[in-house]
């Protein structure tokens, strides 16, 4: 319940973000025969040995852990594609490359449970880490540009986990700027400046209103 204790700043706990990511669809190659599963979250299968099938990640991991299938690493999780993404990520300092919304969680789950199914796992892993670093650096430099004029921040292609990490700081910063730059407060500052008898101990930038 850690994520629920403070609903204001970190809305989702990392495990809740992972929970959401586990519904992403991946392809598995079963080594058993199993009837179709008609589940609440959808219908999957029937499964036949060596015939690829699409299932949610949690189901894939559950079967993999019991040795009933291999998981096919998603198309974007290859050295070739990730190298391209990393290069593009480095070349465009103001944009994020399109990656699956849950790329961090998906790759983590696959590394934890299906490492042997990923070709060049070591390289893939370090590429993903590099991509994360480059992207996060962009987020950080982006934060420096926030000012009182910021009413909207565009973060196209930012992923779920990245959103979750940056959320507390971003929200607090924007709120602080918004509060101190609101027209009411600036007007208040102008008024006190032009008035001949200023109210002595009311600092123009101090918010005395009830929050």
């Amino acid at each position: 319940m850690a994520g629920q204790s403070d609903p204001h700043l970190s809305l989702f706990s990392p495990s809740e973000v992972e929970f959401v990511a586990e519904d992403e669809i991946v392809e598995i190659v079963p080594n058993i025969r199993m009837e179709a599963l008609n589940m609440i979250c959808g219908d999957f299968g029937p499964f036949f040995p060596q015939i690829p099938s699409k299932v949610p990640l949690w189901l894939a991991v559950a079967l993999k852990r019991r040795g009933k299938c291999t998981i096919r690493a998603p198309e974007w999780m290859t050295v070739e594609r990730l190298t391209q993404v990393l290069d593009a990520e480095r070349e465009s300092p103001r944009e994020f490359q399109p990656l699956p919304f849950h790329y961090i969680e998906i790759s983590k789950l696959l590394f934890d449970h299906a490492r042997d199914d990923i070709t060049d796992a070591y390289l893939v892993r370090s590429l993903i880490e590099d991509i994360r670093d480059v992207r996060f650096h962009k987020v950080e430099t982006g934060l420096e540009t926030i000012s009182g004029r910021t009413h909207a921040v565009k973060l196209k292609n930012l992923s779920a986990m990245e959103v979750n990490i940056v959320r507390p700081f971003m929200v607090r910063t924007l709120q602080a700027f918004y509060k101190h730059d609101s027209p009411q407060m600036i007007q208040q500052a102008d008024n006190t400046g032009s008035r001949s008898t200023p109210v002595t101990d009311r600092g123009p930038r101090r918010d005395l209103r009830r929050r």
Binding site: M34, E35, L37, M39
Partner: peptide
């Protein structure tokens, strides 16, 4: 099969 359905239910 039972355990897979159980997971679906738990989620």
């Amino acid at each position: 099969v039972v355990s897979l359905y159980q997971m679906d239910l738990d989620r």
